[in-house]
Design a protein around this nucleic acid. Sequence first.
DNA 1: AACAACGGCAACCGCTATTGA
DNA 2: TTCAATAGCGGTTGCCGTTGT
Length: 278
Amino acid sequence: MGRKPCCDKMGLKKGPWTAEEDDILVNYINNNGGHGSWRSLPKLAGLLRCGKSCRLRWTNYLRPDIKRGSVTPEEEKLIIQLHGILGNRWAAIASQLPGRTDNEIKNLWNTHLKKRLICMGLDPQTHQPLGSSPDPNNKAHTFTSTRHMAQWESARLEAEARLSREPYLFSSSANRTDSDHFLRMWNSEVGESFRDVNKLDNKGSCQSPISDLGSLSVTTTTDLASNNPVGSSSIVKEDFVWGVSDSSSSSELEQDSCETSLQLLLDFPINNDMSFLE
DNA sequence: AACAACGGCAACCGCTATTGA
DNA sequence: TTCAATAGCGGTTGCCGTTGT
Protein backbone atom coordinates (compact mmCIF):
# COMPACT_ATOMS: atom_id res chain seq x y z
CA MET A 1 0.00 0.00 0.00
CA GLY A 2 1.44 3.28 -1.03
CA ARG A 3 1.87 6.30 1.04
CA LYS A 4 -1.11 8.57 1.33
CA PRO A 5 -0.86 11.78 -0.65
CA CYS A 6 -0.02 14.84 1.38
CA CYS A 7 -3.50 16.13 0.79
CA ASP A 8 -6.68 15.42 -1.07
CA LYS A 9 -5.88 16.70 -4.51
CA MET A 10 -9.46 16.70 -5.71
CA GLY A 11 -10.59 20.23 -6.36
CA LEU A 12 -7.30 21.79 -5.45
CA LYS A 13 -5.89 24.51 -7.63
CA LYS A 14 -2.51 24.19 -9.30
CA GLY A 15 -0.33 26.51 -11.30
CA PRO A 16 0.68 30.11 -10.76
CA TRP A 17 -0.50 31.90 -7.69
CA THR A 18 -2.75 34.94 -7.98
CA ALA A 19 -2.28 38.13 -6.00
CA GLU A 20 -5.45 37.32 -4.10
CA GLU A 21 -4.11 33.95 -3.05
CA ASP A 22 -0.86 35.55 -1.99
CA ASP A 23 -2.77 38.04 0.14
CA ILE A 24 -4.77 35.31 1.80
CA LEU A 25 -1.70 33.30 2.61
CA VAL A 26 0.31 36.26 3.90
CA ASN A 27 -2.59 37.58 5.97
CA TYR A 28 -3.24 34.18 7.48
CA ILE A 29 0.38 33.70 8.51
CA ASN A 30 0.67 37.24 9.84
CA ASN A 31 -2.58 37.03 11.77
CA ASN A 32 -1.78 33.65 13.29
CA GLY A 33 1.79 34.26 14.27
CA GLY A 34 3.11 31.70 11.82
CA HIS A 35 1.95 29.05 9.44
CA GLY A 36 1.32 26.30 11.97
CA SER A 37 0.66 23.04 10.21
CA TRP A 38 1.08 23.46 6.49
CA ARG A 39 -1.32 20.61 5.91
CA SER A 40 -4.18 22.31 7.69
CA LEU A 41 -3.31 25.84 6.61
CA PRO A 42 -5.14 25.89 3.26
CA LYS A 43 -8.42 24.84 4.81
CA LEU A 44 -8.09 27.25 7.70
CA ALA A 45 -7.05 30.12 5.46
CA GLY A 46 -9.61 29.36 2.81
CA LEU A 47 -7.20 28.48 0.04
CA LEU A 48 -7.83 25.84 -2.60
CA ARG A 49 -4.20 24.76 -2.54
CA CYS A 50 -2.40 21.87 -0.95
CA GLY A 51 -0.23 22.60 2.06
CA LYS A 52 2.87 21.78 0.17
CA SER A 53 2.08 24.37 -2.47
CA CYS A 54 1.45 26.96 0.24
CA ARG A 55 4.74 26.18 1.91
CA LEU A 56 6.65 26.50 -1.35
CA ARG A 57 4.95 29.76 -2.21
CA TRP A 58 5.75 31.15 1.21
CA THR A 59 9.35 30.00 1.43
CA ASN A 60 10.27 30.83 -2.15
CA TYR A 61 8.37 34.03 -2.73
CA LEU A 62 6.22 35.53 0.03
CA ARG A 63 8.52 35.32 3.02
CA PRO A 64 9.28 38.87 4.20
CA ASP A 65 13.01 38.28 4.38
CA ILE A 66 13.29 37.26 0.75
CA LYS A 67 15.81 39.43 -1.04
CA ARG A 68 14.43 40.38 -4.42
CA GLY A 69 16.56 41.60 -7.24
CA SER A 70 19.55 40.33 -9.10
CA VAL A 71 22.30 38.36 -7.48
CA THR A 72 25.49 40.30 -6.88
CA PRO A 73 28.84 39.15 -8.24
CA GLU A 74 29.92 38.49 -4.67
CA GLU A 75 26.93 36.23 -4.15
CA GLU A 76 27.63 34.44 -7.42
CA LYS A 77 31.18 33.89 -6.38
CA LEU A 78 30.13 32.51 -3.04
CA ILE A 79 27.60 30.21 -4.66
CA ILE A 80 30.25 28.78 -6.94
CA GLN A 81 32.64 28.34 -4.05
CA LEU A 82 30.05 26.57 -1.97
CA HIS A 83 28.95 24.44 -4.88
CA GLY A 84 32.53 23.33 -5.32
CA ILE A 85 32.51 22.18 -1.75
CA LEU A 86 28.96 20.96 -1.29
CA GLY A 87 27.75 19.98 -4.72
CA ASN A 88 24.04 20.32 -5.44
CA ARG A 89 23.05 20.91 -1.84
CA TRP A 90 21.06 23.98 -2.65
CA ALA A 91 19.50 24.43 0.76
CA ALA A 92 22.89 24.34 2.43
CA ILE A 93 24.25 26.84 -0.06
CA ALA A 94 21.20 29.06 0.37
CA SER A 95 21.70 29.11 4.13
CA GLN A 96 24.89 31.08 3.51
CA LEU A 97 23.15 33.71 1.40
CA PRO A 98 20.63 35.62 3.50
CA GLY A 99 17.43 36.35 1.66
CA ARG A 100 18.11 33.88 -1.12
CA THR A 101 16.18 30.67 -1.52
CA ASP A 102 17.40 27.26 -2.51
CA ASN A 103 15.12 27.38 -5.52
CA GLU A 104 16.54 30.70 -6.63
CA ILE A 105 20.10 29.49 -6.28
CA LYS A 106 19.31 26.25 -8.06
CA ASN A 107 17.79 28.18 -10.96
CA LEU A 108 20.68 30.61 -11.02
CA TRP A 109 23.12 27.74 -11.15
CA ASN A 110 21.33 25.88 -13.91
CA THR A 111 20.78 28.94 -16.06
CA HIS A 112 23.89 31.04 -15.52
CA LEU A 113 26.65 29.81 -13.32
CA LYS A 114 26.97 26.35 -14.80
CA LYS A 115 27.46 27.87 -18.23
CA ARG A 116 29.91 30.36 -16.84
CA LEU A 117 32.06 27.61 -15.41
CA ILE A 118 31.96 25.80 -18.73
CA CYS A 119 32.98 29.05 -20.36
CA MET A 120 35.95 29.12 -18.01
CA GLY A 121 36.84 25.59 -19.03
CA LEU A 122 35.69 24.03 -15.79
CA ASP A 123 33.47 21.06 -15.27
CA PRO A 124 30.42 22.44 -13.42
CA GLN A 125 30.03 19.24 -11.43
CA THR A 126 33.59 18.67 -10.34
CA HIS A 127 34.94 22.21 -10.75
CA GLN A 128 37.93 20.67 -12.43
CA PRO A 129 39.25 21.59 -15.87
CA LEU A 130 37.23 20.03 -18.61
CA GLY A 131 38.94 17.05 -20.14
CA SER A 132 41.56 16.82 -17.48
CA SER A 133 42.30 14.00 -15.12
CA PRO A 134 43.63 14.46 -11.65
CA ASP A 135 47.35 14.27 -11.25
CA PRO A 136 48.07 11.43 -8.87
CA ASN A 137 51.43 12.98 -8.03
CA ASN A 138 49.71 15.93 -6.48
CA LYS A 139 47.18 13.88 -4.65
CA ALA A 140 49.13 13.37 -1.51
CA HIS A 141 50.21 16.96 -1.51
CA THR A 142 46.75 18.41 -1.55
CA PHE A 143 44.52 15.74 -0.23
CA THR A 144 44.68 16.48 3.45
CA SER A 145 43.91 20.17 3.34
CA THR A 146 41.24 19.90 0.70
CA ARG A 147 39.59 16.98 2.38
CA HIS A 148 39.40 18.77 5.67
CA MET A 149 38.17 21.93 4.08
CA ALA A 150 35.36 20.13 2.32
CA GLN A 151 34.38 18.14 5.34
CA TRP A 152 34.48 21.07 7.65
CA GLU A 153 32.41 23.26 5.40
CA SER A 154 29.91 20.49 4.89
CA ALA A 155 29.63 19.80 8.57
CA ARG A 156 29.38 23.46 9.43
CA LEU A 157 26.48 23.88 7.06
CA GLU A 158 24.85 20.80 8.47
CA ALA A 159 25.19 22.29 11.92
CA GLU A 160 23.87 25.66 10.88
CA ALA A 161 20.88 24.16 9.18
CA ARG A 162 20.20 22.10 12.25
CA LEU A 163 20.53 25.10 14.52
CA SER A 164 18.24 27.15 12.37
CA ARG A 165 15.59 24.56 13.07
CA GLU A 166 16.41 24.57 16.76
CA PRO A 167 16.49 28.24 17.72
CA TYR A 168 16.09 27.41 21.38
CA LEU A 169 19.67 26.25 21.40
CA PHE A 170 20.79 29.83 21.20
CA SER A 171 18.75 30.86 24.18
CA SER A 172 20.12 28.39 26.65
CA SER A 173 23.80 27.89 27.15
CA ALA A 174 23.00 24.78 29.14
CA ASN A 175 21.61 23.24 26.01
CA ARG A 176 24.47 24.06 23.73
CA THR A 177 25.53 21.14 21.63
CA ASP A 178 28.55 20.08 19.70
CA SER A 179 27.05 21.59 16.60
CA ASP A 180 26.63 24.87 18.42
CA HIS A 181 30.27 24.81 19.37
CA PHE A 182 31.11 23.88 15.84
CA LEU A 183 29.28 26.89 14.48
CA ARG A 184 31.00 29.22 16.87
CA MET A 185 34.28 27.70 15.85
CA TRP A 186 33.49 28.45 12.24
CA ASN A 187 32.78 32.03 13.13
CA SER A 188 36.02 32.27 15.08
CA GLU A 189 39.28 33.55 13.66
CA VAL A 190 40.15 30.06 12.57
CA GLY A 191 37.04 29.98 10.47
CA GLU A 192 37.90 33.41 9.16
CA SER A 193 41.27 32.19 8.06
CA PHE A 194 39.65 29.16 6.60
CA ARG A 195 37.35 31.24 4.45
CA ASP A 196 40.15 33.50 3.31
CA VAL A 197 41.22 30.92 0.78
CA ASN A 198 39.64 32.94 -2.01
CA LYS A 199 41.89 35.88 -1.33
CA LEU A 200 45.03 34.08 -2.35
CA ASP A 201 45.13 34.89 -5.99
CA ASN A 202 42.94 36.59 -8.52
CA LYS A 203 43.77 35.18 -11.88
CA GLY A 204 40.77 34.71 -14.10
CA SER A 205 40.32 33.67 -17.66
CA CYS A 206 36.66 34.13 -18.45
CA GLN A 207 35.13 37.51 -19.06
CA SER A 208 32.28 37.82 -16.64
CA PRO A 209 31.19 39.74 -13.59
CA ILE A 210 32.87 37.04 -11.60
CA SER A 211 36.00 36.85 -13.63
CA ASP A 212 38.03 36.78 -10.47
CA LEU A 213 36.73 33.29 -9.95
CA GLY A 214 40.23 32.28 -10.85
CA SER A 215 40.77 32.55 -7.17
CA LEU A 216 38.59 29.58 -6.62
CA SER A 217 39.13 27.72 -9.82
CA VAL A 218 41.56 25.00 -10.42
CA THR A 219 45.26 25.38 -10.49
CA THR A 220 45.85 21.78 -9.70
CA THR A 221 42.96 19.63 -8.79
CA THR A 222 42.43 16.80 -6.45
CA ASP A 223 40.16 13.92 -7.19
CA LEU A 224 38.18 13.25 -4.10
CA ALA A 225 35.71 11.01 -5.81
CA SER A 226 36.98 7.94 -4.14
CA ASN A 227 36.83 9.47 -0.72
CA ASN A 228 34.63 12.43 -1.23
CA PRO A 229 32.89 13.63 1.89
CA VAL A 230 30.22 15.50 0.02
CA GLY A 231 29.56 13.49 -3.09
CA SER A 232 30.81 14.65 -6.43
CA SER A 233 32.41 17.89 -5.50
CA SER A 234 35.99 18.63 -4.79
CA ILE A 235 38.02 21.54 -3.59
CA VAL A 236 39.81 23.43 -6.23
CA LYS A 237 42.73 25.14 -4.66
CA GLU A 238 46.20 23.74 -4.93
CA ASP A 239 48.00 26.40 -2.97
CA PHE A 240 45.49 26.47 -0.20
CA VAL A 241 47.13 27.52 3.01
CA TRP A 242 45.89 28.18 6.47
CA GLY A 243 45.69 31.76 7.62
CA VAL A 244 47.84 30.74 10.56
CA SER A 245 50.80 30.43 8.23
CA ASP A 246 51.01 34.20 8.04
CA SER A 247 53.06 35.20 11.03
CA SER A 248 52.07 38.84 10.71
CA SER A 249 48.45 38.05 11.32
CA SER A 250 48.61 34.93 13.35
CA SER A 251 49.21 36.23 16.83
CA GLU A 252 45.61 35.96 17.84
CA LEU A 253 45.38 32.56 16.29
CA GLU A 254 47.96 31.33 18.68
CA GLN A 255 45.50 31.52 21.46
CA ASP A 256 44.59 28.28 23.07
CA SER A 257 40.99 28.31 21.96
CA CYS A 258 41.97 28.65 18.37
CA GLU A 259 44.60 25.99 18.62
CA THR A 260 42.00 23.71 20.06
CA SER A 261 39.69 24.57 17.22
CA LEU A 262 42.36 23.96 14.66
CA GLN A 263 43.19 20.65 16.22
CA LEU A 264 39.53 19.71 16.16
CA LEU A 265 39.44 20.68 12.54
CA LEU A 266 42.45 18.60 11.68
CA ASP A 267 40.97 15.71 13.59
CA PHE A 268 37.86 15.86 11.53
CA PRO A 269 36.58 12.38 10.68
CA ILE A 270 37.68 11.14 7.30
CA ASN A 271 34.79 8.90 6.44
CA ASN A 272 32.11 11.55 6.27
CA ASP A 273 30.97 10.56 9.67
CA MET A 274 28.79 13.41 10.89
CA SER A 275 27.63 11.54 13.93
CA PHE A 276 29.37 14.02 16.22
CA LEU A 277 26.73 16.51 15.19
CA GLU A 278 23.98 14.41 16.65
C1' DA B 1 4.03 40.18 -38.84
C1' DA B 2 4.23 35.42 -37.74
C1' DC B 3 6.41 31.72 -36.06
C1' DA B 4 10.00 28.95 -33.79
C1' DA B 5 13.65 28.54 -30.61
C1' DC B 6 15.52 29.75 -26.49
C1' DG B 7 16.09 31.22 -21.66
C1' DG B 8 14.49 32.33 -17.03
C1' DC B 9 11.80 31.31 -13.38
C1' DA B 10 7.88 29.66 -10.54
C1' DA B 11 5.80 25.67 -9.27
C1' DC B 12 5.22 20.75 -8.97
C1' DC B 13 6.71 15.91 -8.10
C1' DG B 14 8.70 12.34 -5.70
C1' DC B 15 11.83 10.97 -2.45
C1' DT B 16 14.10 11.24 2.17
C1' DA B 17 14.44 12.82 6.90
C1' DT B 18 12.32 14.01 11.05
C1' DT B 19 8.90 13.94 14.54
C1' DG B 20 5.61 12.27 17.63
C1' DA B 21 2.11 9.03 19.15
C1' DT C 1 10.27 -0.01 18.25
C1' DT C 2 7.11 0.91 14.72
C1' DC C 3 4.63 3.62 11.72
C1' DA C 4 2.00 7.47 9.98
C1' DA C 5 2.11 12.40 9.41
C1' DT C 6 4.66 16.18 8.24
C1' DA C 7 8.47 18.99 6.62
C1' DG C 8 12.37 19.58 3.73
C1' DC C 9 15.08 18.88 -0.28
C1' DG C 10 16.63 18.35 -5.08
C1' DG C 11 15.22 17.28 -9.78
C1' DT C 12 12.08 18.30 -13.29
C1' DT C 13 8.38 20.48 -15.78
C1' DG C 14 5.83 23.93 -17.99
C1' DC C 15 4.57 28.70 -18.64
C1' DC C 16 5.78 33.03 -20.45
C1' DG C 17 8.64 36.67 -22.20
C1' DT C 18 12.42 37.58 -25.38
C1' DT C 19 15.14 36.96 -29.39
C1' DG C 20 16.13 35.30 -33.93
C1' DT C 21 14.63 33.99 -38.60
